[in-house]
């Protein structure tokens, strides 16, 4: 089939800077994007820089952006992108500096992985023989253990992208999905004895509460690690460990209280309840938005709507909460 590979090129030793190069080629139907890129490098243009190794979606070397989304080039079949006549846009992974062409510099990626201390931490001496844990205590970790560190989730993380656009240095940005999924691997490990300390650190700025729920990482992960689901799970675990003195938890509590009381979320109270009712430094900048919202929505905000028979919703809250408490005992 005839295709065009449109590749984002960059060579720091070349005056042209970032530019696009199109390769028109005839490839067999079974080809992946990586097969096509390798054919370019071997037969058309030996200067094309790329990173790959196993060609079997195991090594994680060939993560790059294909048609705007992070994918493993070796796992992406051209026919699945539309096949015959398609133009395929290939760029290096996002949210990382580029070394050359499709080769991203993964240094910030590894720095973030290191920041979550990805190794078992214990205070007590290890048991004389091996650690014994029941299967079910480890099963929930198999998903995160499948991570191949390809960086696809970091490439497409929308929070990290916004922060880098603001010009923040990497060490002052969101820990991002891969490192947080790795953190979950140890937070959830029954042998690790620093769960609470880890969760306390992860609840600080740049940690679990900076995630914006966009699901990009879940969508692009080639190994179904579902980093965002792990982040959300750690928020639940942090609360269970009594780590509640932060905006994220107060926000969730404001939401729950509002729904419990009226069956609806009442957005105007969320901000002051989350940052603190007397937190003048945080509240002053949002005053103009509050005023324009009041002007816009008027009585809808001053006298918030309520579900009909809202007491039934409150009762449902109590039913489920009671059940949860009973089972925890």
């Amino acid at each position: 089939m005839q295709i065009t590979l449109n590749v984002r090129r960059f060579n720091p030793e070349d005056q042209r800077g970032v530019h696009w190069q199109a390769y028109e080629m005839d490839v067999p139907e079974h080809f992946t994007v990586l097969d096509a890129l390798m054919q370019v490098r071997e037969e058309i243009d030996g200067t094309l820089g790329m990173r790959c190794s196993c060609r079997s979606a195991i090594c994680g070397s060939c993560a790059m952006r294909i048609n705007g989304h992070a994918k493993l080039a070796c796992k992406t079949r051209i026919i699945a992108l539309g096949g015959e006549g398609q133009e395929i846009i290939v760029e290096p992974a996002g949210n990382m500096p580029v070394i050359k062409d499709l080769i991203a510099d993964m240094t910030p990626f590894w720095d973030k992985i290191r920041a979550v201390e990805p190794y078992l931490q214990t205070d007590n001496p290890p048991p004389p023989r091996e650690y014994r844990v029941p299967d079910e205590a480890m099963e929930h970790l198999t998903g995160v253990m499948a991570c191949i560190m390809c960086g696809a989730c970091v490439s497409d993380c929308t929070v990290l992208e916004a922060e880098l656009k603001l010009g923040k240095p990497y060490n002052e940005t969101f820990l991002a999905p891969a490192a947080l999924a790795k953190a979950y691997r140890f937070v959830g490990d029954p042998r690790d004895e620093h769960q609470k300390e880890r969760l306390e650190k992860l609840s600080e700025p740049h940690g679990i509460y900076d995630c914006t729920h966009c699901y990009e990482c879940v969508e692009v992960c080639p190994k179904d690690v579902a980093p965002m689901d792990r982040i959300i799970k750690m928020r639940e675990m942090a609360v269970e460990n009594g780590i509640t003195n932060n905006t994220g938890v107060r926000h969730a509590k404001a939401a729950a209280d509002s729904i419990k009381a009226s069956g609806r979320n009442y957005e105007l109270t969320f901000y002051p309840k989350s940052v603190g009712m007397f937190n003048v430094r945080e509240l002053i900048p949002v005053m103009p938005t509050g005023v324009s919202l009041m002007k816009k929505a008027g009585t809808h905000l001053i006298m918030p709507h309520k579900a009909k028979n809202a007491d039934r919703i409150k009762k449902m809250f109590e039913t489920v909460e009671k059940r949860k408490k009973k089972e925890a005992r």
Binding site: H213, I232, R235, E236, V239, H251, A252, K253, A255, A256, S258, I259, G263, R264, N265, A307, K308, N309, R312, I313, M316, F317, V320, E321, R323, K324
Partner: peptide, 25 residues
Amino acid sequence: HEASCTGFGVLSEQNPELADTLNCR
């Protein structure tokens, strides 16, 4: 009119079963 807020992905952070129950309701 008797339905409740979905929990907008936030309620489920602290109590997934509660959020799912309200939506199934």
